[in-house]
Design a protein around this nucleic acid. Sequence first.
DNA 1: CTGTGTGCAAACACTTTGCAGGTGT
DNA 2: ACACCTGCAAAGTGTTTGCACACAG
Lengths: 149, 149
Amino acid sequence: MTKTIENQSQTMLTRFKLRHTQGRIDILMLFNQFQFALSNADIEENIGAQYDRVTIYRTLKTFLDKGLIHKVLDDSGILKYALCSHDCHEEEGHHHHQHVHFKCIGCGQTNCLEHVEIPNLLLPEGYKAEEANLLISGTCKACNEKPKK
Amino acid sequence: MTKTIENQSQTMLTRFKLRHTQGRIDILMLFNQFQFALSNADIEENIGAQYDRVTIYRTLKTFLDKGLIHKVLDDSGILKYALCSHDCHEEEGHHHHQHVHFKCIGCGQTNCLEHVEIPNLLLPEGYKAEEANLLISGTCKACNEKPKK
DNA sequence: CTGTGTGCAAACACTTTGCAGGTGT
DNA sequence: ACACCTGCAAAGTGTTTGCACACAG
């Protein structure tokens, strides 16, 4: 299982023509392992090995530039990132044009809702949409099932 | 006109049971004047008088708590705020449950699209939505009409 | 007069940059 | 061998806190 995640991460690095370094592999594994959006701090806390904070920043920026991950909006003002989904092609910065995320106010996790589509919205005259980013807040399945006492 | 905006701001302070101080009035006037989302820094730059940066932070936090303004998501990681719309009642932190904003990649302005409704989304089993925050990026009317040379 | 807002200073947190040395290919 | 990653230090930027004084009600 862990092996699978590691292979998955290795494959991604190859596919995006990035050097295979331990740091990148570990960070990618984290993204593959947790399926919700992570901030720089989240990674710092959850990663097994010790990496410099700066390295994580730079790695995330690299991944972002290359299109492995995308930004996830958050109402806390802290940027989070998540893996791009499979249909998110590496067209030089032009990703999948819509992202739907769900932030649970119970556990704080932000998940990608890949199968939820944003309907076409009626924009006012003259506006042209390029990208849509929807953040839904509420309670997730797990938190609904385990009601807080 | 300016007078109207000032009166408007004064009225809001009264309505939300807040003390009328010059700083609050000036900041509210700014929100009423510009109709797009403002960050702390935006306010600092655009306000006529000189206010301490800290005062602006605290004023925004007060407005947020009282429900005069709401957070606007941004992909830059900087928090912005905008006035709550008229149907956004002061039910102690429980605002209007959905916000649609449009961020222009041309001029950088973020506007509220008050008349755009987020359709009911089909969430996966077990998820319960409380609030929805949609950020659409693209080019606004003004920027479309004045094509960049 | 009393409670709250404001300014100043300082602490704190987050992010970026420069450089020297180490590592992947 | 070379380009590029990484760690460390330091600077830059955004945000919060403590305290004394000023001001609105």
